[in-house]
Design a protein around this nucleic acid. Structure first.
Lengths: 213, 213
DNA sequence: AACATATGTTAGAGACGCTAACTTGATGAG
DNA sequence: CTCATCAAGTTAGCGTCTCTAACATATGTT
């Protein structure tokens, strides 16, 4: 996993926030709290997460986070954003070496989408499970659009379209819906119940073909 | 509309018509609390829901619910179950008058699924957004299986298969994934953003045809 | 009428979110 | 080097929340 050491300035902030802060007492409490939050969200589930417990894990007082985050919600949002970054990077990495314009690129994105839901169910749920519904943060919106944009680009190439046409957008939307729903179902029921009944890769290939033909 | 619930001796009856239990102090506090919970979950969102506020709305003390529910989680689960009953009934009602074996029955189910996500986003999120992930309640499992079963029955008839064969299960699973994902996306982004870009009924017809052919 | 039980109440413990006020330590100016 | 400044931590405490314990009362059975 991401070995966030105290000396490494690994806290890559997304646009909009102040520049990287230097190490004072703790080192990089902001990053440490995000990591603690991520762990707890995975271990106990997003509903059972508490700021206090994250503080205990980070070894600071319960008031410390409020020097870095406005409130609990912003702390979770920051953790979600960090997860979205990783998710996007992994999807892009999954495209490496796969021939341009091949439908296999679509399934590669889908497989990575599903993998994220299964490997990081807590973050997946925070990102897509409705937690962000009532939060108006442009960074959340941008992250989602970026992921969708990656898919649309591949769909356009697969269909031989010159760019993001209406037809591309429509097909992409259908594919996105399917993969999104499939991820949720697998996330809910677990790989054991449904992942063994159907081979995921075959399933994705099947759907990609149906949607792109 | 009958609640098909088998009760253990302590908890008598869910809300509904066949109230074999007479009115004591309140009348039917259990049903009142479920209704208050449902309202609050829709108004404030599941995350902001508190038992205390439901008590205020029902006009009882904050300790009263614990005579009817083990804890906050069970109170929310009861509310979700009530919503699942309504959801299932509405899906069945949507099939009335639609010719047997026609793919229109598939789209009718899908439209009702989506309608639930849009009309009752709070309950939808509680049911599918991961809240029930760590809760092992057979009634939750049964409810989901029932809805899936309705779809599978229609898929079998559409494909002309004798029963729930492996192929039916596979096609149904694909359709379910798509509708599930579509509901989530519309739930997230709202009908304004995506529902205007694409006509939902046409979208569903399109996908049904692709999946069933 | 008397009793047992279901259903409500008040009081309070313990956890949590968050704020106010104080303390500490790194940094840069002179 | 000294010191003022300010970021980043601390403790103390308020209000709210979940849930329990102990008590009070309605119901309906006998």
């Amino acid at each position: 996993m991401s070995s966030t050491e105290k000396n490494h300035p690994t806290s890559r902030q997304t646009a909009g926030l102040s520049v990287s802060k230097k190490a004072y007492h703790h080192g990089d409490l902001r990053a440490a709290l995000i990591e603690a939050t991520r762990q707890l969200v995975e271990e106990k589930g997003p509903d059972s997460f508490s700021v206090s417990e994250a503080c205990r894990r980070a070894g600071v007082s319960t008031a410390a986070p409020y020097k870095h985050f406005k409130d609990k919600t912003e702390m979770l949002v920051a953790t979600v954003l960090e997860g979205m970054d990783r998710h996007r990077d992994k999807m892009l990495a999954a495209l490496e070496g796969v021939p341009e314009g091949s439908p296999e690129r679509i399934t590669a994105i889908g497989m990575e989408y599903i993998a994220f839901a299964l490997n990081e169910p807590g973050i997946f749920r925070l990102k897509f499970g409705g937690f962000t519904d009532r939060i108006a943060d442009p960074r959340l919106e941008d992250g989602g659009q970026q992921s969708f944009g990656i898919l649309l680009t591949e769909v356009a190439k697969c269909l031989g379209e010159p760019g993001i046409t209406d037809e591309v957008r429509r097909r992409g939307f259908l594919l996105w819906s399917f993969v999104h729903g499939l991820s949720f179902i697998l996330h809910d029921k677990g790989l054991a119940e449904k992942g063994e009944e159907f081979d995921l890769h075959t399933l994705l290939e099947d759907v990609s073909e149906r949607m792109l033909s």
